[in-house]
Nucleic acid binder design. Structure first.
Lengths: 113, 113
DNA sequence: GACACCTGTCAGATATTTCTTTCACGTGTT
DNA sequence: AACACGTGAAAGAAATATCTGACAGGTGTC
């Protein structure tokens, strides 16, 4: 079976997708790469806000950004979608859950002041 | 193509799964139904907290709860996982994004002081 | 009665996410 | 110089999500 990402990684990806704006972003980028300012107009979101959402998507590995120079010398950052294919079933999630970083126990455990 | 849930619904489901504790919950329930208090001990979470997470998962339609009476007369609430199968790709998300409730425009619109 | 188990909810503290505003920098054109 | 376009980032407000602790009810057994 094509084992997916680790539990923590999966949570990060799901959290990245669990947002209307970010869903629109990947939907738009699925139709072709685009640069930040244009994408902001396309979706109808302020540029700083879009910037935050893009970072979350990129951190989750769902999109990638590349800084390029246009013909007239402007610096443009182009984003495009990564190829991903997540299959979510109860069994798949059960497998992923086993690779989660355990919740730190309050027991007589670690030593760090 | 097996078109999945609506955009808003999908966001709700993803948000429900994008949490370590809730991931553990579905993982545990995937191994068989369980009742609240036992599940709380199993996962190592306080009962009120578990209660909140269960509600989110049930609201998203990922699990279902049934109140039963045990042989000795105690009321027990058993939860079990729903059969779900989400396939997440850029194309699938693009399709789902089109059924999102549009962001309310700040235009020359509504009248309510 | 006192204790075990089960269920639920509410108020409030804390942490995180989301969003706006404002600033900085770059280029090329009028 | 003033304006168009592009980039990034910080500060703080506002809205959610998360978590704890205390409380309510129920049953049955010692």
């Amino acid at each position: 079976m094509a084992d997916g990402p680790s539990g923590d990684r999966l949570v990060e990806m799901l959290a990245a997708l669990a947002n209307p704006i970010r869903l629109r972003i990947v939907a738009t980028l699925a139709g072709g790469r685009d640069y930040v300012s244009h994408l902001a107009r396309e979706i109808g979101v302020s540029r700083p806000l879009l910037h935050m959402h893009l970072q979350k998507l990129e951190a989750a590995g769902l999109i990638t950004g590349r800084l390029e120079l246009s013909d007239d010398g402007k610096a443009m950052k182009y984003y495009e979608v990564t190829e991903f294919d997540l299959h979510l079933t109860a069994a798949a999630l059960a497998a992923a859950a086993q690779t989660l970083t355990p919740p730190d126990p309050p027991g007589p455990a670690r030593k760090e002041p």
